[in-house]
Write a protein that binds this DNA or RNA. Sequence first.
RNA 1: CGGGCCGUAGUGUAACGGUAGCACGAGUGCUUUGGGAGUAUUUAGUCCGGGUUCGAAUCCCGGCGGCCCGACCA
Length: 417
Amino acid sequence: MLQSKLSNFIRKEFPKDEEATNAKVLIRAGFVDKTMAGVYSYLPLGLKVIKNIEAIIREEMDAIGAQEILMPALTPKENWEKTGRWGTFDALFKVIARDKKEYALGATHEEVVVPLAQKTIFSYKDLPFGLYQIQTKFRDEPRAKSGLLRGREFIMKDLYSFHADGDDLDKYYAEAIKAYQKIFKRLELDAILVEASGGTFSKYSHEFQVLADSGEDEIVHCNKCHFAQNREINTAKAGDLCPECKAPLSVSNSVEAGNIFKLNTKYSDPFSLKYRDKDGSEKTVIMGCYGMGISRLFGIIAELFHDARGLMWPKSVSPFNVHLIALSGADENETKKVFLRAEGVYKKLSELGIDVLFDDRSEKTAGEKFAESDLIGIPVRLVVSPKTGTKIEFKKRSEPSAKVVDFSFIKKYLMSN
RNA sequence: CGGGCCGUAGUGUAACGGUAGCACGAGUGCUUUGGGAGUAUUUAGUCCGGGUUCGAAUCCCGGCGGCCCGACCA
């Protein structure tokens, strides 16, 4: 992509009305725009990151055999009345049509996916299976806050699984945990698997918590073993002993990046979601649900991966693989030569399948280009200038110094990373 | 939903109740080109509605909007 063709939403200063680090840096670097409190527009660079996160999640969901669908955001009131949540789910956005008919904007999709599954589940032979979607969710939060971390509209992946019995759910649940762990690893996030309350969804749940000072959750966790619980169900203090291994416990702030539940028959019951078992008897389908906030992950990564100059994206989600910068020369003739060389590098990299952001703007000064490059935070920066001759300057965003190398070095580096 | 802070060009900031200013950005010309460059010139603002006052960005009331704390939060 030519940077001269990229709409530039970069700002020279942080927005004054943002406190949350993720919102400050993402807005300044031109990845998102705040449309209103808790509601953001994803701009060209930000949407690329979102799509990269989604691609990783899709791969891991598909790997455990889940099938992608897309359910509506506009959902019927009757379904919510059936589960009793029309009156109890405070965060439900309700809309009234011109004929006075009411709808809910999807805050979660049990009320849609269960009647849907009913149309394909008849016998034990139809089970188990999983359906997931990536979609915009709406929740009427009493207070949107922390930038992308708690919005009123956000992108979420939600998976629902259907089983003949509890054992099968347990097996699937364990697979889902593994898939989630793979996703977090690919995103370069350390997510702790934490036991938590089930809220209104089930008796208990597991959360994937990413440690961050700005997080609104508090978790009690052991540094020696896997014991970890949300503070809402465990009031231990730092230094108290781990109930499992007796090592001292830590208490940390964290952000919930995923939450999974064994629903059992909580939502199959109200819709009479049943199947015919081997012996001919009718049984209720057992369910699990597995959520992951994609726009929240985007915010978490921005919150954690940055320095004073700007963002520092993990390779797996960076909006581009490489930022190639051409610098002007002392005169028009030299500039022309430099830009021609840079174009050649751009073409060769593109042919290798590398996604390059090429700063081909001739009117910008070197300082401005470097400052913007650091702000955008692509992991590798290449510079072609009168100084570099036939070679190319190579610099990692995470490292302070650059080196001058041949194209073959860059090719080797990019193809093996 | 309670409490606090706040709202001035696109952005960031100033202005005792008394001429709305500065910087950046943007437009145009020229000069520049390895860390947000220089110069000349142009552009653009007091959230909305009431009130007090000779006079309101400034004080008062109401609304709207933003952030933070709390409550809340599959």
